[in-house]
Design a protein around this nucleic acid. Structure first.
Lengths: 243, 243
DNA sequence: ACGGACCTGTGAAACATTTCACAAGGGCGA
DNA sequence: TCGCCCTTGTGAAATGTTTCACAGGTCCGT
């Protein structure tokens, strides 16, 4: 992927950029600012499992996902690891380290085969400074992230396993629906367990219980939420109110 | 406190504002932008326990703490509650709802008797838009918050009780030292338990175990961290490595 | 078309944490 | 200064979750 980055970026611009146009936080930027930003973008293709950056790295780029998903995670010295976020088409990631210049605070990995856009820090930072509208856009993005992350803290602290699992499923379907229009989540039970901080076995048993009541359908590497309402009710009821 | 807000704000400006100057994220703003911002500020005094805003409220103001501490928390329908953050002198809070215009996502309460500065949304938002430097400052602030909150998620997911407790104590002393210069934390075990999401009883037993080994000293409504290093080591070792 | 890696499924025992039910002490306001 | 409320302290039983040790399925790359 080293050669002809620019040619690639331009060649595909109308089709690939439309993904960003459609879903991203940049959607309502003025057209020319958006185009200008995209002119800096480099296109790349990654295979499932490829590391993108690691905790402690200096921030060099901002990324946007075109196709596939990227996993933001952290692993502890004793081998456990936690998935903080899954980034899908049209979303961007890696903006925090870029905006504050500090080192990366988590790992990013291609969770499936991916196509990404990459914008270099050297071009990005001055551009943001020069475009007040863009800066406000990033403030909005950061606020959104902050609300999501606080929600996560809240859930992990206040809810038990069923509640946390339900929250995660609903959050994922909500986001997924917005981009894909269907409720089948392409996610493994292992991954979910790392998102909510409980073991795969426990997650499996809970999912199975729900499946037998028709709330969800379990497939291979995927979960379909059939009845969101009872799950939502379970969250609002708080710890153990009829599993 | 309704009368003479302006007179108050000006009368005390040199002494009270110095607290903000000293610790806050605004510290290195240009002098005149800072002064201008402060001209909008209203001063108020609150008694311990006074609610400042509640989850779901529309955002009307930005707050800065002059003296005392403010508790940012959420409570679940079944009576449990989680403390997301404690805000001390020189720090600001309530900025997220203000910046994105969405409703408040948590409750804020005066955790001790407090003095606050309040800036109205109507004056604040246009001011931020007009001052690119200030906008960048807020981006930094949001990034910092986001890193802290992500850390919290990480710890709650990856660590067990001793680890979480150690993290919380070190985080609190770290911040406290910066503002107060001493390591005695004025915090109850109840409060700590709500910050880390475990019961007061469990927290008490763990603290007691550490106290008997001389790592901490327990006082009435306060905790003194005597030896931070072993606690730090415990975190890095991960779940159970010699309680 | 095959092999291996990854994903799902499951039960029993081990473990960490909560719950409950107390007792006693300190501090603050009336 | 008296009370009362909030805070600390503690033990045993109950509970939720993890750990461990498997087996079978399915998908992907070669």
């Amino acid at each position: 992927m080293p050669q002809d980055n620019n040619r690639e970026a331009r060649g595909f611009s109308s089709s690939k950029l439309s993904v960003l146009r459609k879903h991203s936080y940049f959607a309502d930027l003025e057209s020319d600012a958006f185009e200008q930003l995209c002119r800096y973008a480099k296109h790349s293709t990654l295979k499932r499992g490829t590391p993108i950056f690691a905790k402690g790295d200096p921030p060099t780029s901002l990324f946007a996902v075109i196709t596939g998903t990227v996993k933001i995670s952290i692993s502890s010295p004793d081998g456990r690891n936690a998935i903080l976020n899954l980034i899908g088409p049209g979303e961007i990631f890696g903006e925090i380290a870029l905006l504050d210049g500090q080192e990366r605070s988590a790992d990013a990995t291609a969770n499936t085969n991916c196509e990404l856009f990459t914008i270099d820090r050297r071009e990005f930072v001055p551009f943001v400074r020069s475009q007040p509208t863009l800066a406000m856009k990033f403030i909005e993005l950061l606020c959104t992230r902050l609300r999501q992350t606080s929600d996560q803290v809240e859930q992990v602290i206040l809810q038990d396993l069923p509640g946390r699992l339900a929250s995660a499923l609903l959050r994922l379907t909500e986001r997924h629906k917005r981009t894909e229009g269907e409720r089948r989540l392409a996610i493994t039970q292992q991954e979910i367990s790392e998102m909510v901080g409980m073991t795969r076995e426990s997650i499996n048993k809970q999912l199975r219980a729900w499946a037998s009541r028709g709330l969800v359908r379990l497939e291979h590497g995927a979960i379909v939420v059939l009845k969101p309402e009872p799950l939502q009710a379970l969250i609002e009821a708080g710890p153990d109110d009829g599993v």
